[in-house]
Design a protein around this nucleic acid. Sequence first.
DNA 1: TCTGGTCAAGGTGGT
DNA 2: ACCACCTTGACCAGA
Length: 300
Amino acid sequence: MRIGYPCINYSIERKGTSTFRLKSYSPQRLIETVEFNLVYLRQMLEYNLAHEIYFFRISSGLVPFASHPVCKFNWQGHFAESFAEIGKFIKKHKMRINMHPDQFVLINSIDEDVLKRSVAELEYHAQVLELLGLGAAAKIQLHVGGVYGSRDESMARFARRFEKLSDAVRKRLVIENDHVNYGLSDCMEVHRMCGAVILFDVFHHSVLSRGETIEECFKEFTGTWKKADGKPMVDYSSQKSGARAGTHTESIDVKDFKRFLDVTSRWDFDIMLEIKDKEASAAKAIKAARGDKRLFVESL
DNA sequence: TCTGGTCAAGGTGGT
DNA sequence: ACCACCTTGACCAGA
């Protein structure tokens, strides 16, 4: 079991800028920004190693506008060596990586242009992972998408589109239950249609479900992961008290987390903490899991 | 130097 | 048809 956090580390002081506006695009600007982002990524990974954090989500903003028509620069070639070096570090320390494209990536969209842009964006994500030298266990997580007036048709459309994706994308793409449209049971149905692996979001499940227990969910979704996919991945967060249902907490609820570890003790998996204070909660979670037989077995 | 309006991209639901 | 909301950081123009 690995425990991690997404994209940003607040303990590391950053000097520079991580993105820019479309208006300011130039190859030079892109080079400067990606150089900065790769240095920052490396710093975060080193921080993670020092703090026993072996799971990390790389920001989709690593290469700004990579899938936009404005970007004609061969960043893949230009930064190949830097990516490979970072990838070596990741593999050396048996770290787990994933990525999560933004909300406008929808492969079940009824708009062909949205589909085209989404596929381009997914290709970009796969390229990043390829350049790092990471295989099918480095996942790209996506929601099923919109409803467009018919859930059944939209799930079937997802499955059809999934099957047409390139190998590089398809072998890494996993679907995550959301908290509005498609719960775990829907994802399982999509899985039966096209074989897509399922990442379980515990918090979304607490907002949208058919009342299945966590154990029942684990029995189901862990079965969609094959050996080449690596350990199952789980997104974990909890409700911010007093806020509207679905609002992520500021900092981890350690009691709730311990209960979760207890309930899932029969399974080994990697946990991504989708919590606002990032590495601070990761530290608390690792402390809470200390002594759990599953923790860090791969790094011993 | 500071601040707040704004930023590529979509979908949903209320009016 | 139109608009707020989702959710979030940080760019960058203007003060």
